[in-house]
Design a protein around this nucleic acid. Sequence first.
DNA 1: GTAATCCCTCTAGCCGCTAGAGCATCAAGA
DNA 2: TCTTGATGCTCTAGCGGCTAGAGGGATTAC
Lengths: 138, 138
Amino acid sequence: MNFPIGELSKRTGVKVPTIRFYEQIGLLPEPPRTESNQRRYGKAEADRLNFIRHSRELGFEVEDIRALLAMASEPQSSCHQADSIARSHLAEIDRRIASLTALKGELTRMINECGHGRICDCRIIEALADHGHCSTEH
Amino acid sequence: MNFPIGELSKRTGVKVPTIRFYEQIGLLPEPPRTESNQRRYGKAEADRLNFIRHSRELGFEVEDIRALLAMASEPQSSCHQADSIARSHLAEIDRRIASLTALKGELTRMINECGHGRICDCRIIEALADHGHCSTEH
DNA sequence: GTAATCCCTCTAGCCGCTAGAGCATCAAGA
DNA sequence: TCTTGATGCTCTAGCGGCTAGAGGGATTAC
């Protein structure tokens, strides 16, 4: 209890400047300070920061996290909204996977068709120059 | 031939401010200007810009595109480097797909376990708070 | 003639941090 | 007690790849 920012950083795996940044944008509350102006944290802040870190790792945006944190602080309210945030995030991830998979196909095709000769015969350069060669939209 | 920036934009699907931005960072050469200081473009610039747009759509970074454009302008040299850029980009896409797929699994699990009741019982909030519940690393 | 549309430059903002300058403070060893 | 090195502080600026807006000039169509 009552540890400095470097210790909070070690406990959560979040870098010190990032912790200060989260405080600045209001994801973390302003902690108490020592007489010499150093931040002091407790377990509650570590829990909150772990929540934030984990949410970021799962790709949630800061605004989503803000909403999720607000919900987490009202244990009696419905979790409908949390569900909805998670679902729309999942849909976004599906979109990204689909898009990346299409790109992967296109790139693989380009690379396989490349004869490893000179640029003037290179199918990669050619394919990049002309979208008409592509089999998918992007 | 010799059309203004809006026309170039229409032909390539790249927005006007983006074209100026590409010029600023040196992806597009500075075009000739009319007496009244307006940019004028020709087919070569449209081709180059299409190449850039298509590369961006395929997820190549600006620095990659810079290198690919330099290669494209030396038709007699080996396409080994183009191949290498494309391959490392493909590897990066594979990494992103793998990572997103893992996230998708985690999120799906969270959502499915949510009983749609109150926050205090919500598995989404709980899972976010504790990485220990996760089945994959991230 | 005039109104709508284009074009120009310049600055600032987006997201989620990260880096660095320049200084104060703290903890541990000699 | 002194020193040294790690840690803390604030502030500003930068990353990538654009996008938005202000405040003006030029062109085009009617």
